[in-house]
Design a protein around this nucleic acid. Structure first.
Lengths: 198, 198
DNA sequence: GCATTATTTTAATCCTGATTAGAATTTTTG
DNA sequence: CAAAAATTCTAATCAGGATTAAAATAATGC
């Protein structure tokens, strides 16, 4: 009954499982990965996973929750930076890209959100929406403070999110590529936002 | 034994099925859609689908093949236009976006490519690769002919493809939005490519 | 209209991977 | 070390959707 200072072992394993699952889902597709696949990667047996997760649906849900959370953190660090609109947009993108190609481990592409059970699906969708809105707000701020060139905020947001979310489709862990991505992607995505003159 | 001039009825139904399937996959997720779901949408019975497709795997494969083909056409029309690099890039994006939000019907997001059987998977991947390479070539041409500003060709390609491929995630058929997308998305995606001065 | 072919349905079957129960093992605690 | 709790395994079971076989219906050609 210790005052759970150490959410240690359980939480730790659970997180390993989520990362292994994310890796499997991204690499082998959702329908292509069985619980056995995920378990094997950790030297476990499929049944063992049920100690950490109610069922496969919840495994996916947790993966997505983790992905959403990492995105949220990237966003919050950017907003906390106190820069102008452009700087915050750039920073958010860099933070998020860093997560996608960095050692946070694989981040699951949210392709099976629609098949989550309603409560889970709605939660994930709500977080995603908040996330999008937050980015659009940054863009709006940038328009107002003059750091971002005139643009359709909604569409720009959709474009940027798409580009970021799609990363795991073509990035497969090569560290050299990771460096390149980190250096160029944020610039690629924000070039169009830069205010040219005044 | 007629010289199959009219691939009519069969091909027609098959295409309807592919579109219905694409719609289901995008809306309900891959694991969330059963063959019965797809069939019901057409007033058919699940078993009837087997007259048009060997199994579910092939249904997905055909959906992806169709998606890839639509993309290829968008690309070819752009290349055939004979414009400079920037113009071709812009045109390709417009063409492709038009397909994604237009009345070509829903285009399947290729999220389950990894779980296709090897031959199918490799074919889809090969097409995708060709597609990416083609776009990168357009960008390279633009760099050479001076119509596109200095940029990382590979990463720019990845960003643009991601943004386009992600469209079905947030576009759900609203015609007003379709118009907006068509008008703004190509501009959003190419702004960063425009040569500012010389 | 009749025969042939194309398309769809009904009614099983099948199969695979998720899930569960309970035993075994390992870890922790005192 | 003994008892309790935590974690994992073995061995079934189970469910649900994919798939099939055969019959029924619709379309087509003559």
């Amino acid at each position: 009954m210790a005052i759970a200072v150490d959410a240690t072992r359980f939480q730790f394993q659970r997180d390993r499982i989520l990362r292994a699952a994310a890796a499997c889902f991204n690499q082998k597709g959702y329908s292509g990965t069985s619980l056995k696949d995920v378990a094997r990667q950790l030297g476990l047996t499929d049944a063992a996973l049920y100690y950490y997760v109610r069922n496969k649906e919840e495994l996916v849900y947790q993966c997505y929750l983790r992905a959403a959370d990492l995105g949220r953190r990237a966003m919050e660090r950017a907003r906390a930076s106190g820069g102008n609109g452009f700087e915050q947009a750039f920073l958010y993108i860099r933070n998020h890209v860093e997560i996608m190609v960095g050692d946070a481990g694989p981040v699951a592409i949210m392709s099976e959100v629609p098949s989550l059970k309603p409560a889970h699906r709605n939660e994930i969708l709500a977080i995603s929406r908040r996330h999008s809105v937050a980015f659009e707000e940054i863009l709006s701020n940038g328009l107002r403070d003059g750091s971002i060139a005139d643009c359709d905020v909604r569409m720009t947001g959709n474009a940027v999110m798409g580009a970021i979310n799609w990363i795991p489709k073509w990035f497969h862990g090569d560290p050299a590529v990771a460096t390149q991505v980190l250096e160029t992607f944020p610039d690629v995505l924000t070039r169009g936002l830069r205010k040219t003159s005044g």
